[in-house]
Amino acid sequence: MHESRADLFQRLKRRHEFWLASVIAILVIFLSVATQGFLTLQNFFDLLTSYAFLGILAAGLLVVLISGGIDISFTATASIAQYITMLLANKYGLDWFSVFALAILVGVLLGAINAILIDRLQISSIIVSIATLNIFYGLLVFVTGGKYIYSLPSWFGKGIYWFEYVDADEISYGLNLQILALLVMFTITWLLLNRTNIGRQIYALGGNREAAQRLGFNVFRLNILVYCYMGLTAGVASLIQAQLAQSVAPTVLVGKELDVLAAVVLGGASLAGGVGTVLGTVLGLALLAIMQNGLILIGVSSYWSQFFVGLVILLSVSATALSARRKRKGNLVE
């Protein structure tokens, strides 16, 4: 409104998202100039498609972190949701609506187990989710014998494409199932967190749990909602991953939980709760995606990509801590 440009800049400067966006902008400009393949529509769609799985899970984990908890069992949840849904789809020939409903149902139920253990038994969320990760995953592989499902229903295998476009090399791309799901889940998460009172309660809970209790928030219900939402995203993510991989493997998803955590944390969410935005998570994810993509495009062996990811995480969290410390020192003087 009557804010001067300098004020606006001061305000922006304090936002984590501003710095992330700046780094990404520099990266994008550099890669656009330095490489041929980066600034193409196809590369853009490919990146969105391949990072959709991580992104959808990141949206769910963001909500959990904001509430002051943590969940790392979601990869096992996704594996179970995927397996049950595709097993039943093969047997009974379901349709799009019912496979998503089923996967979401499984995810929500497993999320509720986490919430009940965390809230009712008062065990810290990290311990509960380490335990349930092992329980869910162990039981899944035990029951299935670790067998892959290679044949998926043909309608599922084909996937969904809008605005399909086939280029000169006969490679088709467009708005596919993965991208659509990613957009929908980010939108729903944003609406939940910013446009509903429950979303604000989640922020409040993460900011000051005791105060939330005193004010009469229903903490149990919030916990149920948060962990079930994580389960829901795991259900959705599991299906689009199965569609992309054209198979279901009970053992490939588990182990990716810390990658998702890294993306959310890069996006500025705090493990202490109460802090984090959908925009930040999108940017955190974008930074990871563009950096890994860019390294390959400028000819760095893909074997080294993980090293750079680690380096970026370490630099980012150190920079955040240092600037927080400077802010604290400033307060002391005044």
């Binding site: 009172n197 604000r200 309660q201 922020y203 409040a204 993460g206 900011g207 000051n208 005791e210 105060a211 939330a212 005193r214 004010l215 009469g216 928030f217 109460g274 802090v275």
Partner: peptide, 20 residues
């Protein structure tokens, strides 16, 4: 301890009853 929510804005803290 005032029972405020440090991560929320002044407006939300004052009108927190609206979120219940």
């Amino acid at each position: 301890d005032l029972s405020l929510f440090p991560n929320l804005t002044v407006a939300e803290n004052i009108a927190v009853g609206q979120h219940l």
